[in-house]
């Protein structure tokens, strides 16, 4: 941890942002991401099994059939038993990988329960606007705000470079959220690694993702589509349901006073 890193720790600790030289995934905030991490570990089990086994065969072959040790080449062309084995086993292993993989894939698509709220995330060049319109009683009034990335040259001490935004999306934790992702100009995307979500934002199309953030916190993401020079960051702040009510009525509405 560098000197500024220490400040980082004290001013605000972005527990759910990527850190330098990070190898694994960010901590899961949704059951979906937990599933992805578990699947990754499951597959890694097979991966290491295969790696060890194949390396062993390779090293043994190089060792035992070295020209100095074994100057006369073997004349065996094929062996039925080993050919059956090395066909059947490699076809069973992908099955063991595919079953949990498809189970996860389809469960992620499925909307199991009715969502409790809808947030619209609309990509623009280069910011994002969010609409909370569950409470609207007319077409005009809507809780809409823009979320701009804090420019590279003026993040405050402790803020992550090109990851922080001026207005965060506030969502209630432990609630089924429907996020409608779309774009107003070029294709963008809405991706937050710790929520396990990466969804294309296509103009003229509404893509739905359903997530349920399990713990309160601040989650960082970025546009994952090559949409221009400034990919807009995404910051999701999950708060308790209780706090959510006051945040929506106090914080978000004044900011959208002119909109």
């Amino acid at each position: 941890m560098s000197f500024t890193g220490i400040f980082h720790f004290f001013t605000n600790s972005p527990c759910d942002a990527a850190e330098p030289w990070q190898l694994g995934s960010q901590d899961a905030a949704t059951p979906m991401m937990q599933g992805i991490i578990d699947l990754h570990h499951d597959i890694f089990f097979f991966l290491i099994l295969i790696l060890v086994f194949v390396s062993r065969i390779l090293v043994r072959a190089l060792w035992h059939f070295h020209s100095k040790k074994n100057p006369i080449p073997q004349r065996i062309v094929h062996g039925t038993t080993i050919e059956i084995l090395r066909t059947i086993f490699p076809s069973i292993i992908p099955m063991f990988i595919a079953i949990p993989s498809f189970a996860l894939l389809y469960s992620m698509d499925e909307v199991v329960v009715d969502p409790a709220m809808t947030i619209k995330a609309i990509g623009h060049q280069w910011y994002r606007s969010y609409e909370y319109s569950d409470y609207n009683s007319s077409d005009e009034q809507s809780l809409t705000f823009d979320s701009y990335t804090i420019p590279e040259d003026d993040p405050e001490l402790g803020q992550s470079r090109l990851l922080e935004v001026d207005n965060r999306v506030v969502v209630p934790a432990k609630t089924h959220l429907r996020i409608i992702v779309t774009s107003a100009d070029v294709p963008h995307s809405w991706a937050v690694p710790s929520s396990g979500v990466k969804c294309d934002a296509v103009p003229g199309r509404l893509n739905q993702i359903s997530i349920s953030v399990q713990r309160e916190g601040v989650y960082y993401g970025q546009c994952s589509e090559i949409c221009g020079t400034n990919h807009a960051s995404i910051v999701v702040e999950a708060v308790s349901r209780k706090d959510y009510g006051s945040r929506v009525s106090n914080q978000l509405i004044p900011q959208t006073g002119e909109a």
Binding site: D114, D134, P172, S249
Partner: peptide, 10 residues
């Protein structure tokens, strides 16, 4: 405090 959350159903 808490506000009622309600939206279009699936």
């Amino acid at each position: 405090g808490e506000i009622e959350l309600k939206t279009a159903p699936a």
